[in-house]
Amino acid sequence: MDPAEIEFLAEKQLISIIPKFNLNHTIHLISGDIGPFRSGIPVRVPIWLAINLKQRQKCNIVVPEWMNVETLEERKENEKQSEFFTKMPNEHYMEVSRMLFETAGDEIQKIDEIRTVLKDIWDLRMSKLKASINKFIKSDTGIAQLDHLTQLEINSVRPLLPDSLNIISSLEKDQDSDGEDNSQSQNRASSSFAQ
C-alpha cells in the first residue's frame, strides 16, 4: 500500500475548525451531515475538508488535544518504558500531524518541538518493530500479535515482512499444499518429450 492511500483513510477523521464564513444549510454529505457554518463558531468536519477550507483561507483549524508537547512527551516515556507497543493517541498520528504541519503550521504552537517528539516516538516504535521482526523471522512461529501498531507503521514493513514469511513457508513445504507432487518443471518436461 502507498502511504498516500493510508493518508487518504486518515483524512476521514473528524477535526474541529473555526469557519470564516456563514452557511445556513446543513450539508448532507454521503459520509454524514456537517454544518451549518457560523463564522467564529467551531464545527466538526472531516480532515479532508478542513485541509481544503484552510488552504482556501476559509477557516482556521483547531489543533487536536493530543498534539501538544507535554502529552506527547508523556507518551514517549510510556513507549520507552514498555516492552510492547503502547496505544497511540490517534490511530493515524503521523498522517494527521504531517497534514496539519503542512497546512496549518501557523496555528500550531511550539511546532518544532512537537515535530521532534513525534519523530522520536516514531523512531522508537520503528526500532522496536525491526527488532521484533528479526526475532520473529528467526523463530518458527507462524503468527505474531501486534496490537496498537498503526496502519502506517504496519505498512512500513510491507512487502518485506509478509513476503519473507511467504518465502520461508514455501521453502518449508515438501510439496504444493494440495498434494501436487509434480513440480512445474516436471509438468513442462513431460509434455515436451511425450512420445
Binding site: D140, G142, I143, Q145, L146, L149
Partner: peptide
C-alpha cells in the same frame, strides 16, 4: 488454530476485539 511456519504444530489463538495479528 494457526500452524507454525513449517506447517506442523498448531497453536490456538484467541482473537479479541481490536487485536491485531500477522498470520497466513
Amino acid at each position: 488454530f494457526i500452524p507454525d511456519i513449517a506447517g506442523n504444530e498448531e497453536r490456538e489463538v484467541k482473537l479479541t476485539e481490536n487485536s491485531q495479528f500477522i498470520l497466513p
